[in-house]
């Protein structure tokens, strides 16, 4: 095994190893030291986020126009500056209502992004993707593979329909006081849950695989550190 950690980085590695072990100790339960690590980590990330947001958003959108051309810049940044200023009132409990204007604006744009994004970014592409296997004319697949493609398309269509049926909320009230869907919807949704389970199972397995790599990497770092120490002393 070769050493990947340069000697000069030994101190940093030692810190990294210490932090790794401390975080691992969280498996035994919450304790003082691991909390210290977590709070320090949260603080660090908050600090970096603030600087990154300043460099990437506030500076180019608010300050740079003023620096480039103060007069035109003011015209350009007046409204966003006002909105930002109003939003800052949200930190005060008493004056927070003043910030509602900015918040309403932000929510409005967010809702548009939500609706537009969901329709154009998810709904329509996914619908189109379900149908596309049946579009034999535009298909670039070789003729020999078209049949299997069709079978695949049918299965995906059926699975999608069953999965969608699973979410049906409407039900009929029963004498017992409970509410149940129609029998055939229940049956379809039962099939749908199998598809959901498989989909989520695949994603879960992928998540585990990503975790295994993280574990292996940490073990490698620890081993490297131990070997470095052995060689160094």
């Amino acid at each position: 095994m070769t050493l990947d950690v340069p000697y000069l980085d030994l101190l940093g590695s030692a810190l990294g190893v210490l932090l790794t072990l401390l975080v691992f100790s969280y498996l035994l339960g919450d304790h003082f030291l691991v909390r210290l690590v977590f709070y320090g980590y949260i603080g660090l990330m908050a600090g970096f986020a603030v600087v990154i947001a300043f460099n990437s958003v506030l500076y180019p959108l608010l300050l740079q126009p003023l620096i480039d051309d103060p007069l035109a810049g003011w015209m350009q940044v007046a409204v966003p500056l006002l909105l930002s200023g109003l939003l800052c009132f949200k930190v005060s409990t008493r004056l927070s209502r003043i910030g509602n204007l900015s918040l309403a604006f932000l929510v409005g744009v967010s809702l548009a992004a939500l609706i537009g994004g969901a329709i154009q970014g998810t709904l329509m592409p996914q619908l189109s993707a379900v149908i596309s296997p049946f579009d034999l004319e535009r298909s670039s697949v070789a003729a020999a593979d078209r049949f299997s493609g069709l079978i695949e398309g049918f299965l995906i269509l059926f699975g999608t329909v069953a999965t969608l049926a699973y979410f049906h909320f409407g039900a009929r009230p029963r004498f017992s006081g409970s509410a149940r869907r129609l029998e055939w919807i229940e049956a379809l949704s039962w099939v749908g849950q199998i598809f959901i389970a498989i989909a989520l199972g695949l994603i879960f397995a992928g998540l585990l695989r990503a975790g295994f790599v993280a574990l292996v990497e940490r073990v490698q770092v620890l081993l490297n550190f131990v070997i470095t120490l052995q060689q160094g002393f």
Binding site: L123, T163, F195, I198, L202
Partner: peptide
Amino acid sequence: ILGTAGVRGLLIGVAL
């Protein structure tokens, strides 16, 4: 295939 069907159904539902 089965997973894709589930994913599509979930995504369409979430989008809706």
